[in-house]
Design a protein around this nucleic acid. Structure first.
Length: 146
DNA sequence: AGCCATGCACCG
DNA sequence: CGGTGCATGGCT
């Protein structure tokens, strides 16, 4: 399926809040499989490519998209990452729980955007979202809040 | 599968 | 020499 956008809720490690000097976010395999990002050749070790992006404010960024795949070469790694995102994450002060949105490129540039975490937004095991307000009021079905 | 963590190389 | 990212190991 050719989706036009993908997004990920940032982990603490993604944003650097755990003080891991890891600088980027882990891409879940199901997103990698969409081939939303360029396909990386698994026959070579740690294949990568550069991704040019533009955000809603018109700022341009360059991330690296890497497939750490040494598991296919006798090691233990088998995961995708977008790296070199520190500048972007700091520029918008993105934290754990915030969401980064990627839009399929029209020309040379992918689109990047972000959405702040709702304060008090939680997700029930059923997948239903709940926004807690003051005074014990809550809002159910928060799809239209985005 | 996903997140947390780190030794070291590189670079200002 | 301090900050950053690479490449990898470790834990859940």
């Amino acid at each position: 399926m050719m989706r036009s956008t993908v997004e990920k809720v940032l982990s603490a490690n993604d944003t650097g809040e755990t003080h891991a000097h890891q600088a980027g976010l882990l891409i879940p395999k199901n997103i990698a499989r969409l081939e939303f990002f360029p396909k990386l050749d698994p026959s070579i070790k740690n294949p990568r490519c550069v991704i040019d992006l533009r955000d809603a404010a018109g700022e341009e960024w360059t991330f690296n998209y890497i497939y750490y795949n040494n598991a296919l070469f006798g090691g233990t790694r088998n995961e995708y990452r977008l790296t070199s995102m520190t500048e972007f994450l700091r520029h918008y002060d993105l934290k754990e729980g915030d969401t980064v949105v990627f839009k399929r490129p029209t020309g040379r540039f992918y689109g990047v955007d972000y959405r702040r975490k709702h304060q008090g937004l939680t997700t029930f095991p059923s997948g239903r979202k709940v926004l807690k307000l003051s005074g014990n009021w809550i809002i159910l079905d928060t799809d239209d809040l985005s």
